[in-house]
């Protein structure tokens, strides 16, 4: 059986996203086990360094180009991928489970009559079949699944699969101009939230909870985030209180994150909060209550006052970084 894998490469502002490179690498690992092949597809206007997907294991990338496709259009993007896959007969599709990937993967699954496994955190092969592990109930349980349909779509949780160090292989690039794309749903503008790193994409996150005592003290959270090059996050309690925007909320009804380092400041560690961050590689908790549940998932903790500990952390990190 031929296992032709197609990986969707997401771009924003003409730059390839890291989560797409993670997907290429994961696809190429699977292709080796299934003796298959990996190609990539991108959609947009101008994109920098398309050939670099070769370094992660895709032999070829096809770019569908039209100035009107610079921003995401669910209708056009799904049509283009479905049509291309009809021509080339791909068996397996990989996406990053990013905002765009979560929107696009199900549409492609219906159009190509594929089964769909979302938000995978681990992929294995057993007797020539892909076994995917994915969290459910906000990470309170895990399921191992396989897709029984002939065609399959997998979307991989960002920040979980290691893209590795790229080789200097370059992918063959072919560019296809798209005439009159289907823009029945289209993004007409993007509002950025003032240049901050988003928790969903950050490698380090510093989050504050009700223990920060008031919105004015989140300066401390942001200052620690800044010295660490981190995004700032929040618990629901402080989002509901209007101290922080919902886009920062981590947890079951906020964002699910898996950074390398998650620092929880004045957060108790309610089950709904843990659900969103427990898969972080390292967790640090600062909380003055030594019995707070957050310490059960923390790798390192200080059972002290955030107003005393956090300024000392900022100083200490500045010191070692200088």
């Amino acid at each position: 059986m031929a296992n032709k894998i197609l990986v969707f490469i997401e771009q924003r502002n003409g730059k390839i996203k890291k989560s797409s490179l993670e997907a290429v690498k994961a696809a190429s690992d699977i292709a080796q086990k299934l003796s298959g092949s990996v190609e990539a597809v991108s959609i947009g206007n101008e994109i920098e360094n398309l050939e670099k997907v070769g370094g992660y294991g895709a032999c070829k990338i096809t770019h569908f180009k039209n100035a009107a496709l610079e921003n995401y259009s669910p209708s056009a993007y799904a049509d283009i991928i479905a049509k291309y896959s009809g021509e080339k007969n791909f068996d397996i599709f990989f996406f990053a489970a990013s905002s765009m990937g979560k929107d696009l993967a199900p549409r492609v699954a219906v159009k190509t009559d594929s089964g769909l496994a979302m938000d995978c955190i681990l992929l294995n092969c057993e007797s020539n079949e892909i076994i995917a592990t994915r969290p459910i109930y906000a990470g309170k349980a895990l399921i191992e699944v396989k897709l029984t349909s002939p065609k399959k779509v997998f979307a991989l949780r960002p920040n979980v699969f290691n893209p590795g160090t790229p080789t200097d292989k370059k992918a063959d690039v072919s560019i296809i101009n798209v005439d009159s794309p289907n823009l029945s749903v289209k993004v007409v503008d993007i509002k950025k939230s003032e240049g901050k790193i988003d928790v969903a994409e950050a490698d380090i996150i510093v989050s504050g909870g009700r223990g920060m005592k008031g919105p004015e003290h989140f300066k401390l959270v942001e200052d620690l985030a800044e010295v660490l090059g981190a995004a700032s996050g929040a618990s629901r309690a402080v989002v509901d209180a209007g101290w922080r925007p919902h886009s920062e909320q981590v947890g079951q009804t906020g964002k699910t994150v898996s950074p390398s380092l998650y620092v929880a400041l004045g957060i108790s560690g309610a089950i709904q909060h843990l659900a969103g961050m427990r898969s972080s590689k390292y967790i640090v908790a600062i909380n003055k209550d030594k019995d707070a549940p957050i310490f059960q998932v923390a790798d390192y903790g200080i059972a002290g006052d955030v107003f005393e500990v956090v300024p000392a952390m900022i100083e200490e990190i500045k010191k070692i970084k200088s």
Binding site: S193, K196, E201
Partner: peptide, 10 residues
């Protein structure tokens, strides 16, 4: 979306 909002028409 990550880091902002898209304005979408349909």
């Amino acid at each position: 979306i990550e880091g902002g909002k898209e304005i979408v028409e349909t």
